[in-house]
Computed example of a mutant assay.
Amino acid sequence: MAYFFKANDVAELAMRIEQKGQAFYLLAADAAEDPGAREFFEFFAQEEAKHEVFFRGLRDRMGDVEIPPGSDFEEYTRYVLALIDSHDVFNFDYTEAFKSGDFTFEEAVRAAMRFEKDTILVFTELKSMVPEADRKIVEECIEEERGHLKMLAAKLKG
């Protein structure tokens, strides 16, 4: 079975990941009782919104999709789709978890860490598919996601 990406599908996918991330962080902020926790999650929601704007611009100007040298297009496409399908943010409805009141701050941070790790992995692969001129900016987004992961981990440590 062949799968084919259109050029702007790559950036559209990244936008969806950022939108889902933003929604997660807004849910976490809304559920947070502690003002510091609320501010913490609101910061991450704003970061996801910034990334969405970047990927929207990329979508609007993208040329052909590229794949890593030596890769089989169909096989590589299946791999990228598997990464997307397994991304934590697409596989769990956090709305109910937050509404139930049983989702602790620590659980929210751990879920956010899974989200950030999955996003780093997906963006690392997407970087190789965008035009050379845009790879540096995608790498900057990856570095920001790595920074988010470090911040989240530090929050768990106290």
Rank of each mutant, 00 (worst) to 15 (best):
M1W: 01
K6L: 12
A7F: 06
V10C: 12
V10A: 12
A11H: 00
A11M: 10
E12I: 12
E12Y: 07
L13E: 05
M15T: 07
R16M: 10
R16Y: 08
K20Q: 06
G21Y: 02
F24V: 00
Y25E: 02
A28D: 02
A31F: 04
D34W: 04
D34V: 03
G36K: 06
R38K: 15
E39V: 05
F40W: 03
F41A: 05
F41N: 01
F43Q: 11
F44N: 00
F44V: 05
E47G: 13
H51W: 03
V53M: 10
F55A: 04
F55E: 00
L58V: 05
R59L: 13
R61G: 05
D64K: 10
E66A: 10
I67Q: 00
I67L: 11
P68Q: 04
G70K: 00
E74H: 06
T77A: 15
T77D: 15
R78G: 06
Y79G: 04
Y79D: 01
V80L: 14
L81C: 07
A82I: 01
A82H: 13
L83H: 01
S86M: 10
D88I: 13
T95V: 10
F98K: 00
F98T: 08
K99P: 03
D102Q: 15
F103Y: 12
F103K: 01
A108I: 01
A108P: 09
V109I: 15
V109A: 09
A112Y: 02
R114F: 10
F115H: 04
E116A: 14
K117L: 12
K117T: 07
K117P: 00
V122M: 04
F123H: 05
F123T: 00
T124N: 07
L126G: 04
M129A: 08
V130K: 07
V130G: 13
D134S: 15
R135D: 12
K136A: 15
V138R: 02
V138T: 08
E139N: 11
E139H: 10
E140Q: 02
I142L: 08
I142W: 06
E143A: 14
E143M: 07
E144W: 01
E145I: 02
R146T: 09
G147S: 08
H148D: 03
M151F: 13
L152S: 13
L152A: 09
K155G: 10
K157S: 14
G158W: 03
G158H: 03
